[in-house]
Each structure stands twice: as C-alpha cells, then as structure tokens.
C-alpha cells in the first residue's frame, strides 16, 4: 500500500514537473521531452493505482500499454514534424 502511495506521489510529481517544464521552456525538443515526462507521470499514477488490488487490475495494465503505444507514436510524429520545421527554418535563414 505504501509502495503504491509512493508511486502515486511520484507519478503526480512527474506530471506536475512536466507541466511546469512545458510552460517554462520554448524549444520544441524540450517541450516534447516535457510532454513525455507528463505522460510518464500519468502512466505511473495508473500503474500505482492498479497495484492496489490483488490480483493486479488487468484493465489498467491494458490501458497503460495502449497509452504507451499512443504516446510513442505521437512522439515519433512530433519529432518528424520538429525536424521538418527545423529544416525549413534553416533553409529560410540560409537564403539571402
């Protein structure tokens, strides 16, 4: 139970840190990292809640797995977009 509580607190802290970072930083990659920290926090909370029951709640695990897949795809897409944007910006700047 205490273990669950610990992870719960950790998860919420991660989520808040991620949010704070997102509000503070401007750089695209940093913002993406911040979003991922937020996501990590949310998933930690979910896992922490899941282990409170015995046996461990399978639905939550399924949700976290789905969530991770979504998060990974979204991040991949965001990175591709960020690199495309950076590419364009560089080209625009190199042009006289």
């Amino acid at each position: 139970m205490t273990q669950s509580l610990l992870f719960l607190v950790v998860g919420v802290c991660l989520w808040v840190i991620g949010l704070y970072g997102l509000l503070r930083v401007r750089h695209v990659i940093r913002r993406l990292i911040a979003v991922n920290i937020m996501g990590g926090g949310a998933f930690t909370v979910m896992v922490a809640i899941a282990v409170r029951t015995d046996p461990v709640d399978p639905v939550f695990q399924a949700l976290v797995v789905t969530g991770l897949v979504v998060a990974v795809s979204a991040t991949a897409f965001a990175l591709r977009l960020a690199s495309a944007e950076a590419h364009c910006t560089r080209r625009r700047e190199s042009r006289p």
Partner: peptide, 17 residues
C-alpha cells in the same frame, strides 16, 4: 501545426490523468 500538436498532447494528458 507543432503548437497544435503539443497542446493537443498536453490536453490528452490532462484528460488521461
């Protein structure tokens, strides 16, 4: 688009929590 994406992801995380 990038701004839209990040906001959309953050919004989802609010919702998910």
């Amino acid at each position: 688009a990038m701004r839209y994406l990040i906001l959309s992801l953050v919004a989802s995380l609010f919702y998910l929590l």
